[in-house]
């Protein structure tokens, strides 16, 4: 048995299946958001720092599965503004905005009439944008709906934060990313036995105290 297999198996058991689970969780959030608001669709964009793009991560609505994985520049359109400004926005009659309509239609084939967009904030980081498309028109929008949207965004943010952490852990296990050194250290300690293992753990404890 390769000496790192125990560590890999232990971490992988907790991390590697998570991508699918998180995808299901994100999809569940947009499905519920769509149902609660009685909307035609809902979607979550994730911000990808490496490419400075927004990526469709979960979609509920018409033609939903074709959209997952599609990308757009982080600075474009209403989702881009919400991402950059970290501020929610609720708009009706967006079809009157010719550039928005053209951009969205080219990207998704579907131009909503109204949309609510809210940033996914986790601590001080913005991870993406949650959108709810074409809720039924009512006499007036209410601040209560804005509050509800924020609650959903908070839930989605936690899920996305876990997803991002899981992806970093996977990258570390694969030897990439800024956590790779930590993963390598953990693997080295895991491989030790007896007194050397105790000494290794004491060393890591001391390191943790110094860095804290």
């Amino acid at each position: 048995m390769p000496e790192n297999e125990g560590l890999h198996a232990a971490v992988a058991a907790g991390v590697l299946p998570a991508e699918d689970e998180f995808a299901l969780l994100l999809r569940s959030i947009v499905v519920v958001a769509r149902a609660i608001f009685g909307a035609r669709g809902s979607s979550i964009f994730l911000y990808e720092p490496e490419t400075d793009e927004l990526v469709f991560a979960a979609v509920a609505g018409d033609d939903e599965q074709g959209l997952v994985g599609k990308r757009m520049p982080s600075s474009r359109g209403i989702a881009g503004w919400v991402l950059s400004s970290r501020t929610p926005l609720v708009l009706e009659d967006v079809q009157q905005d010719p550039r928005f309509a053209r951009d969205v239609a080219e990207g998704t084939g579907y131009v909503p009439k109204g949309l609510m967009a809210v940033p996914l904030l986790h601590d001080e980081t913005v991870l993406g944008v949650l959108q709810v498309l074409d809720r039924p028109e009512r006499a007036a929008f209410s601040l209560r709906e804005m509050e509800l949207l924020g609650l959903f965004a908070n839930q989605a943010s936690i899920a996305v934060a876990l997803l991002v952490a899981a992806r970093r852990a996977r990258a570390a296990l694969a030897g990439h990313g800024d956590a790779a050194a930590v993963a390598a250290l953990a693997a080295a300690v895991e491989a030790l036995e007896g007194e050397r293992r105790a000494a290794g753990i004491a060393l890591v404890d001391a390191l943790a105290r110094i860095l804290a």
Binding site: S85, T87, P88, L89, V90, L91, E92, P98, F141, M146
Partner: peptide, 20 residues
């Protein structure tokens, strides 16, 4: 800040909500 008819791109208006 709720259901405000505001100027938007293309010389038009849009109905918008937010502290913005």
């Amino acid at each position: 800040g709720v259901d405000v008819d505001v100027a938007w791109l293309g010389g038009g208006t849009i109905r918008a909500t937010g502290n913005s």
